[in-house]
Design a protein around this nucleic acid. Structure first.
Lengths: 119, 119
DNA sequence: CGCAATATGCAAATCAGTTGCATATTTATT
DNA sequence: AATAAATATGCAACTGATTTGCATATTGCG
């Protein structure tokens, strides 16, 4: 697989990089209407496979994508639907899980609840 | 909301109860071809709202459902695609997360890696 | 520059999940 | 047990996200 650094590819990635939070394919298309939605999908898949970005699926209708700064977790507010990002001591959590016969590559903690603004 | 205990509703729930692991709407429809897929969707939504079952979303194309025995977490093997269930000390994990301004209702830990049979 | 490989756009397809509506089943009430 | 109101089901058709096929355009190497 020999990837090319096309203009549109860079624009899509920069949009994700500079955006604080997650974006769906559609969100990106709204920001970049000059790029076909299919191209956006193909590049998001590509970046995800290359682990440049992360696809997150919180059970909403659309998949969300974010530039992978440092691994972190997500809290979904059931009231305002906002996604909050937070980090946690993954190593300590891994120890608590006690998965002896499983080679853990990635831990993702998803929290559901109510954010400070909503209660 | 006044629910009725219909035959098909019971059959769908029993299928989930007796199945060890998760099932998608489609999986259930294959097991119960006599029940319309729409009825299955509607009942899965209902059971989920009533917290009788749990909808889990591992980033695959279809949502998965499972009868809610006791809350637990999931590990997805990237090699064999099997879903492993495990429990963890949720209270201790919650403390590690340090989400001060967020009312945590539910913690879900999803692990990705390789299971013992696959490495 | 010229060519081969890869990317893009458009149209059309697919796939999961949802909705409208007519009919059937359940449950509370006689 | 019969009736009526409420709720559930099936079918067809729809929606919205994502994917695929194919012709054309762009990129990167020699």
């Amino acid at each position: 697989m020999n990837l090319k650094l096309t203009k549109k590819r860079q624009i899509i990635l920069n949009t994700l990089k500079s955006h604080d939070g997650t974006l769906s394919a559609n969100d990106i298309h709204k920001l970049l209407p000059e790029i076909d939605i299919v191209t956006i999908y193909r590049n998001l898949d590509l970046f995800t496979k290359e682990k440049i970005i992360k696809q997150i699926n919180l059970g909403t209708n659309e998949a969300q994508y974010e530039y992978q700064q440092q691994p972190h977790h997500h809290a979904l507010c059931s009231s305002c639907e906002k996604v909050i990002h937070f980090t946690a001591p993954d190593e300590k959590i891994r120890e608590l899980l006690g998965l002896k016969d499983f080679q853990v590559d990635e831990i993702e903690v998803t929290v559901k609840g109510i954010c400070s603004k909503s209660h």
